[in-house]
């Protein structure tokens, strides 16, 4: 369970320290710390789109951080969420003896719009510290699925961003070769999205064939 976020030389690479350096070093950069409640305590930094490439370059070339190794790039899908909450409101109600104020409980439904997210895990090969975690979020899951590509900063993002494009449908602007990587070219959907529905199989498959009445059972009966 040793994940030293402070390296032996003593450079503090906690999310908070990185944020402070970014705000100072990249003018106009908006970085927010995203807390992580698990015992791993790997907090991350949410970057804005305009300054993402600049901030990434800054972190890569920073003399103390030297985050030259982008280890892991991945997409995460956060679909639209409907949150129901009960709120107490004071309303004026017409009573038998004139209008009167009364406390009424109301259920309110709010739709939290979904978004797609990419997560970058950065380490430093030179200084041997990490991880520093960056996040980028798209505006929504439909048309606004664009993010700046960090492949020009770290070459290792090339295939991994292609994978996020393929499986999640995140479009990386500035990626040199954004094609599908694991699915075939004519495939249209994005299988890692939470609402993905696989197409019907035309061939009988063995999967779940052990349920009675399935092709497997009939095959057994036909013997």
């Amino acid at each position: 369970m040793s994940s030293p976020s402070i390296d032996p030389v003593g450079v503090d690479v906690s999310a908070e320290a990185i944020r402070a350096a970014l705000v100072k070093g990249v003018p106009g950069c908006e970085a927010t710390v995203v807390e992580n409640g698990s015992p791993s305590a790997q907090h991350s930094l949410l970057l804005d789109h305009e300054h993402a490439v600049e901030a990434a370059t800054f972190l890569r070339d920073h003399a103390e951080f030297r985050l030259d190794f982008c280890s892991n790039v991945t997409g995460v899908d956060w679909p639209d969420k409907e949150v129901t909450e009960k709120v107490k409101v004071t309303k004026v109600v017409d009573g038998p003896d004139g209008p009167k104020e009364q406390q009424v409980e109301e259920t309110r439904k709010t739709l939290i719009p979904g978004y797609l997210e990419t997560v970058y895990h950065l380490f430093s090969m030179e200084k041997k510290h990490g991880p520093v975690i960056l996040r980028l979020r798209t505006a929504n899951r439909g048309e606004g699925n664009h993010l700046p590509s960090l492949t020009p900063v770290w070459r290792s993002a090339e295939f991994q961003e292609r994978e996020a494009f393929d499986l999640f449908g995140i479009v990386f602007d500035g990626h040199p070769d954004l094609r599908r990587i694991l699915m075939w070219e004519d495939f249209t959907d994005h299988p890692m999205r939470k609402d993905y529905v696989p197409p019907e199989e035309d061939e009988p498959v063995m999967d779940d064939g052990c349920a009675p009445g399935s092709s497997a059972e009939q095959g057994a009966a036909g013997q």
Binding site: M206, A216, G219, A220
Partner: peptide
């Protein structure tokens, strides 16, 4: 040689 029935064990 039975692809569906032969490997479904009851």
């Amino acid at each position: 040689d039975d692809r569906f029935g032969g490997l479904l064990w009851t």
